[in-house]
């Protein structure tokens, strides 16, 4: 079953079985965001500490499938300790990796999605590339992006609060 192996790559199963950065940071001082996937009832809680333009710490909690849980784990590993600019760039890259394929699969307005979609060089995203296989399964894209949307929302809220 090649397709399934594409989806459930070893890195994904590893992060699902042994999630990194799982739990909740004390809030406050950490900033806390909840994300919901109304389709399946999955919930994710992302807590983050931003200081001096850097994402100092991040944890995730909640329930979800292997894709949403491993994506959250991979995300936390990828963004912890990074500058906010780098984090935002990574969020854009990751979401564009998901949306290019959405457009190719005809799932969203193709013109709109193609316009946004900058080519993704998967070599720049390390282990996150393991989630590429998700795009062959359009209904699972929301699982993969759940924690990323929560992180983006959290950064936006912090930026608004600081301005």
């Amino acid at each position: 079953m090649p397709d399934l192996e594409d989806l459930y790559r070893e890195i994904i199963l590893d992060h699902y079985r042994s999630p990194r950065h799982r739990g909740e940071l004390e809030s406050p001082p950490a900033h806390r965001v909840e994300g919901f996937n109304p389709l399946c009832g999955d919930e994710v809680v992302v807590t983050m500490v931003v200081d001096g333009g850097t994402l100092q710490d991040i944890k995730f909690a909640g329930t979800g499938c292997s894709i949403s849980q491993s994506s959250a784990s991979l995300m936390s590993s990828a963004v912890k300790g990074k500058s906010l600019d780098d984090v935002r760039q990574l969020i854009r890259t990751f979401k564009s990796m998901m949306s290019i394929h959405e457009a190719a699969l005809g799932e969203s307005g193709p013109d709109e999605a193609l316009e946004e979609a900058a080519p993704v060089d998967v070599r720049t995203i390390g282990e996150l590339a393991a989630l590429q296989g998700v795009v062959k399964f359009p209904v699972r894209i929301k699982c993969a992006t759940l924690s990323w949307n929560a992180l983006a929302q959290g950064l936006d809220e912090l930026a608004t609060a600081a301005s």
């Binding site: 079953m1 397709d3 399934l4 989806l7 459930y8 399946c40 999955d42 329930t63 979800g64 499938c65 292997s66 894709i67 849980q69 399964f137 699972r140 699982c143």
Partner: peptide, 12 residues
């Protein structure tokens, strides 16, 4: 095993 994952395998 999360139901989403079960359903995905069953789809195969």
């Amino acid at each position: 095993v999360h139901p989403h994952d079960l359903a995905q395998v069953l789809d195969q």
